[in-house]
Design a binder for these strands. Structure first.
Lengths: 215, 215
DNA sequence: TGTCTTTTCCCTTAAACTAGGGATAGAACT
DNA sequence: AGTTCTATCCCTAGTTTAAGGGAAAAGACA
């Protein structure tokens, strides 16, 4: 019997998956909620740990990528099958590095879901060819450059933005950066706003995790 | 028409593959030899560049992994389908990073080979579940900052403090950590105060740099 | 019993960060 | 001449972090 948990905010999709799983002989639904935070509180009471979690990373609250980190650091044995609408290679890479074990690209057929679950159950990993290609490409880029100035190239930052980003990552505060670059605090703030927009994050931690690929 | 090249030292296997490819309507064999060095000299005369090379990395002479580098740096567009008897995750990782696009584990069926060729032709990448799992694991090891629990050992953090430190480094805010650990915000604040005292830092950035800069 | 450690909780203040709005000026390209 | 990009600046509001104070329960240990 394979124990499944669902974290998905789309009610329709969640119900559909719940239904499907409850109809399968070898699958058992142990929880189903719309937010990672919900599961975190549930788990403390019930103490039920699934074998696999179907996790939508487009959901509100804690970022999906962080959710993966949290789940996999707490329960290293739990397989995480990520449900996502976008096919961003960078997101896929981050997700896999954070501990994801597979992807379901929305919209997907329930048969696909079952197939992925079977593969995970047997300990394997299978990804869609397109995701796989992007993943390998990202890995090659990271592996071969690994922390030069080109590390921001993929985000098309301007020269000034790269300077700011480097200082920020080095641990400088906005105020320190403004002193170093001899500009005002608000200018630094402005550059960082633009950097975050380009890199698609909304906090320093998310930025760090995005550019350095950690857990 | 998909142009194929073969570099394989096992005569029997090579003949088998040659035969199979010549029977396929949409495949065309442009060369077949037993060593990478042979192809290097052939290519200078003939100038024929295949779309895909079937490369045995267990062959003598130039190491198989180097052969991949050589081929992919000379002809970046050429797909490399690696034929190998062993299933070493590290070798698989090196091969992929050097530019390989897929694997055929010996012994394999010709139908598998054709399937791989089709996938490569369409630009995708598909790996065996076992190889895939090993590859992802290797990638995580390489890219995750020395991430064990023992990474905080030198600072003599308590169990709870380690939990908090990990979540903090994973990008969680104090509030999120409090939700996850099911304690109050002030408790998280308290733990972090103590962590910073032990680690002798006074900001999150300094903490990140301290624990990821070493070990 | 008294002390120490760990874990939990509260209040408060200051600093730092995030993000929205709007603005000006030079360079470059159409 | 108009648009777009880059870089600079300001104001404001809300959130998050950092660090000081104090307190209390549970367990280990001498």
């Amino acid at each position: 019997m394979y124990l499944i948990g669902i974290i998905e905010d789309d009610v329709q999709l969640r119900k559909t998956m719940e239904n499907y799983i409850s109809l399968q002989q070898d699958l058992s639904l142990v929880f189903s909620c719309n937010r990672i935070e919900k599961w975190i509180s549930i788990r403390q009471d019930a103490g039920i740990i699934p074998d696999c979690i179907l996790l939508d990373i487009g959901l509100p609250g804690i970022s999906g990528l962080d959710a993966i980190s949290i789940i996999s650091s707490y329960y290293p044995g739990v397989k995480i099958l990520v449900i996502t609408g976008m096919e961003d290679p960078l997101v896929a890479w981050q997700a896999m590095m954070n501990g994801a074990n597979g992807f379901l690209l929305k919209p997907f057929r329930l048969a696909e879901m079952q197939k992925q679950l079977e593969i995970l159950q047997s300990g394997g990993t299978v990804l869609e060819p397109e995701i796989m290609t992007g993943l390998i490409q990202t890995a090659r880029n990271r592996f071969n450059t690994a922390g030069g100035i080109e590390r921001f190239q993929e985000f098309a930052l301007t020269q000034r933005e790269i300077q700011v980003a480097e200082l920020l990552l080095a641990g400088s505060s906005y105020k320190e950066i403004s002193t170093i670059l001899n500009v005002s605090y608000t200018t630094v703030n402005e550059h960082i706003k633009n950097i975050y927009k380009k890199v698609k994050v909304n906090s320093k931690m998310a930025f760090i995790n995005r550019v350095s690929g950690k857990s």
